[in-house]
């Protein structure tokens, strides 16, 4: 039996690569979508060589929402699973003073990914099957001084996924929200992250695969984050506003 294809939006990122490997190891064809797709050739070749599955690359820019239809139409078919790993942290201080920069962070983390998943959601709904995976962030659970521009966009994305799940629950389409916590990736390189709270991209890949199989709704990659975020969410605002986090 051939397994359904997995489309990864943001296939160049460390987490995207790890998710691609996890699904390819299970025999799924994988389609990597990113900007400058030619540069993904080594990853594509690796996936085919290692896992003997079909791997393809596609040019994709999450901010080019007007080209979205064309992108989806040019795919070899409608995938079984679509994963959005797209994200862009930006620089909080720059985002505070430069509205263009802030808009770029908001569009990359919310508007772009939401538009892309909305399109696949409609097509999945029409087909009556499919899985949508959105990699959001714990930063979206509560705004903090150090990254609230990024966090607010992720909050929007998380709410979008939640609504999508609600809408499609009875239509055969499953929606999974992933809140990875700290992950050792290019985005966090150079940051001093606590080891016990930091996942490797490979852990995220395995966790997403497991969660898709077991139809989970919302997952943290490291279970300890469930506790951490419960505490952070429950600190009264009057106290929270005075804290340095």
């Amino acid at each position: 039996m051939t397994k359904g294809a997995v489309l990864i939006l943001g296939g160049r990122s460390d987490i995207g690569r790890a998710i691609a490997r996890a699904f390819a190891a299970e025999g799924h064809p994988v389609w990597l979508a990113a900007r400058n797709a030619d540069g993904l050739e080594p990853d594509r070749a690796d996936l085919e060589l290692r896992y003997r599955v079909e791997a393809k690359c596609f040019e994709f820019d999450v901010l080019a929402t007007h080209r979205l239809e064309g992108f989806a139409d040019a795919l070899p078919g409608l995938p079984e699973v679509v994963v959005s790993v797209v994200g862009y942290m930006g620089d909080q201080q720059v985002s505070e003073t430069d509205p263009e920069a802030a808009a770029r962070v908001m569009r990359s983390n919310f508007e772009g990914p939401a538009a892309a998943l909305a399109l696949f959601a409609n097509r999945f709904e029409a087909r009556g099957s499919g899985v949508i995976v959105g990699i959001s962030s714990v930063a979206g659970e509560r705004g903090r001084a150090t990254n609230y521009v990024y966090g607010s966009a992720k909050a929007g994305f998380t709410a979008f996924l939640s609504g999508l799940r609600n809408r499609l629950a009875k239509k055969g389409v499953h929606v999974l929200t992933v809140l990875p916590g700290f992950v050792a990736t290019a985005m966090t390189e150079g940051m001093d992250l606590p080891e016990k709270l930091t996942a490797q991209p490979e852990e995220v890949g395995r966790a997403v695969l497991r969660a898709v199989k077991s139809k989970r709704n919302v997952i943290y990659v490291k279970p300890v984050w469930c506790l951490v975020m419960a505490v952070i969410r429950n600190i009264p605002e009057a106290i929270f506003k005075g804290m340095k986090l």
């Binding site: 460390d14 080594p42 070749a45 690796d46 060589l49």
Partner: peptide, 18 residues
Amino acid sequence: RFDRMISFDAETGLLVAE
């Protein structure tokens, strides 16, 4: 991060890997 396999020749057993 240089963890990709590049090619394999099933005649000679030559594997090229990062």
